[in-house]
Nucleic acid binder design. Structure first.
Length: 493
RNA sequence: GGCGGCAUAGCCAAGUGGUAAGGCAAGGGUCUGCAAAACCCUCAUACCCCGGUUCGAAUCCGGGUGCUGCCUCCA
């Protein structure tokens, strides 16, 4: 497959360190607040990458960290009067719930800073021994000027940055650009012993230490949001290669685009945040995921509620299509007709080629939609046989799995939870139309009774009444559809 | 101030030299008691503007305009 490499600034063939194996490290979250849709985008993008690589036959090892110790966590914990690691643990479990709802596969390894202190200390020791870092009054600092290639990832020169007015002034540093590898603890702060004094890691060193620990030098893909290019990933390269004695740190750098809200980047510090939890109250996780995947992963994504409506429509279409095939599929030894088989294999070929092209999801979705239309067209010309439906279902499901949109139960759950919220409305409708119900009926029981009432009306030619009932249900957000095989319903909040 | 990115229909969005994918919305039709779903048809002589290169440009080059990312914690 081809991927866009940030360092080389071009799209290149992905050649793994070891044939058939991909090692990837993705910068995770700092869990001091609920995850927002931007965090979700990054997680979903790399989850897609992992799924595609596995689908393409690679053995993938995916590592993603939690920065469970940092300035913000410490400050937040103080404000709330709790222990920092408890605060981060709470948000980590919340994050896990959110990611599960988005059908993000758990990474294979999820190291935490607080559990990686020894690796971090060892790495800092090597950097100091190699002459790239020094101990100062309030911590251990990396000497940016000693690392020639500093700036290679972000495309800036050390001199450009020096002239920038916004570089932090700190007299403990030898140079304003130097960054902390180890921060000495202030009284009462969480800290660990180190050869240089009690303290905690700087932000950047942790990712170097954890990725090298679990994947080794020269691992394949290092990813994250594009806002991490500078300084985080730039610093990672510098400190890692300073410790690695000439070995390469990472083979390919990938960066996912930001989610913009109201014209600027959504971020906790700006405060223009929509959390994953808020969205999940409105939309099934699969819809949120589909929304995030419709745009190329590298481009900025303008957050818009109408986009979720469109994604919902598309998701329903896919869910309905799958149900349609499932209803027809039958195990069979019949050979699928060549014309039909070519629709299926052509689809899978185009789908794979799209994702192999630097994860071109827009193109992949076009293949999915085209496939649905072709199969439906075929089905409208003549009945599909069981083996054809099975073949189409198999192809469709394999694509859905790669996209992470294989949780059809998610849609059904969403439907039934919306339905459950309509107890009172349904009771009112039932009473109004004279359906046979009692107070103990469940929502689905109520709906069944109303549908039965309407069915009788239709069968006896009382179409006015049938239409009236359908209209009443529509007014409470339930749309009935009469099909040849019975009545179906769609539901909206 | 420095270094980047983006600009395609009402909306979302592919396409990086060969004559504009796909989806949503909209309009028309088939089917249906009527709807809905499904299927069929229509929907950018045109890709922010102005120049240039080329047989040929949404795609390359130059200049504008607008939006935006990073340079500080960030996914």
């Amino acid at each position: 497959m081809r991927i866009h490499d940030t360092l080389m600034r071009k799209t290149v063939e992905l050649v793994p360190r070891e044939p058939g194996k991909i090692t990837m490290y993705v910068c995770g979250v700092t869990p001091y607040a609920s995850a927002h849709i931007g965090h979700a985008r990054t997680a979903v993008v790399y989850d897609l990458l992992k799924r595609y690589l596995r689908h393409a036959g690679f053995a993938v090892t995916h590592v993603s960290n939690y920065t469970d110790v940092d300035d913000k966590i410490i400050r937040r914990a103080q404000e709330q009067g709790v222990v920092p690691l408890d605060l981060s643990a709470r948000y980590i479990s919340e994050y896990l719930e959110d990611m599960a709802a988005l059908n993000v596969l758990p990474p294979d390894i999820t190291p935490r800073v607080s559990e990686s202190i020894q690796d971090i200390i060892n790495l800092i020791g090597r950097i100091i021994a190699n002459g790239y870092a020094y101990v100062s009054r309030d911590g251990v600092y990396f000497s940016v000027r000693k690392f020639d290639r500093y700036g290679c990832l972000s495309g800036r020169s050390v001199d450009e940055m020096r002239s920038g007015a916004r570089v932090e002034v700190n007299e403990a540093k030898e140079d304003p650009l130097d960054f902390a590898l180890w921060k000495f603890a202030k009284p009462g702060e969480i800290s660990w012993d180190s050869p240089w004094g009690k303290g905690r890691p700087g932000w950047h060193i942790e990712c170097s230490a954890m990725s090298l620990r679990h994947l080794g030098a020269g691992f394949d893909i290092h990813g994250g949001g594009e806002d991490l290019i500078f300084p985080h990933h730039e610093n990672e390269i510098a400190q890692s290669e300073a410790a690695l004695d000439g070995q390469q740190f990472v083979r390919y750098w990938m960066h996912s685009g930001m989610v913009n809200m109201g014209g600027e980047k959504m971020s906790k510090s700006v405060g223009n945040v929509t959390t994953v939890r808020e969205l999940l109250e409105q939309y099934p996780g699969q819809v949120v995921r589909l929304y995030l995947l419709q745009t190329s992963y590298e481009k900025p994504l303008k957050f818009s509620i109408s986009g979720f409506g469109q994604a919902f429509t598309n998701y329903e279409r896919m869910a309905e299509f799958e149900a349609f095939l499932q209803g027809l599929a039958q195990a069979s030894h019949d050979i699928v007709k060549e014309e039909f088989e070519s629709i299926c294999s052509g689809f899978l070929g185009e789908f794979d080629a799209s994702l192999a092209d630097n994860l071109n999801t827009s193109r992949a979705f076009a293949a999915v939609y085209e496939f649905m239309t072709r199969v439906r067209r075929m089905a409208s010309e003549r009945p599909l046989d069981g083996s054809e439906a099975s073949r189409a279902l198999e192809a469709f499901r394999s694509a859905l799995w790669v996209l992470g949109l294989d949780q059809t139960c998610d849609y059904m759950e969403h439907k039934s939870s919306l339905l459950a919220g309509k107890q009172h409305a349904l009771m009112a409708v039932a009473v109004e139309v004279g359906a046979a119900v009692d107070d103990h009926d469940s929502t689905s029981g109520l709906l069944d009774a109303i549908v039965m009432k309407r069915r009788i009306a239709r069968e006896t030619g009382q179409y006015d009444m049938a239409d009236q009932i359908r209209e009443r249900l529509r007014s409470v957000g339930i749309a009935l559809e009469d099909g040849v095989d019975g009545v179906r319903y769609r539901i909206r909040g």
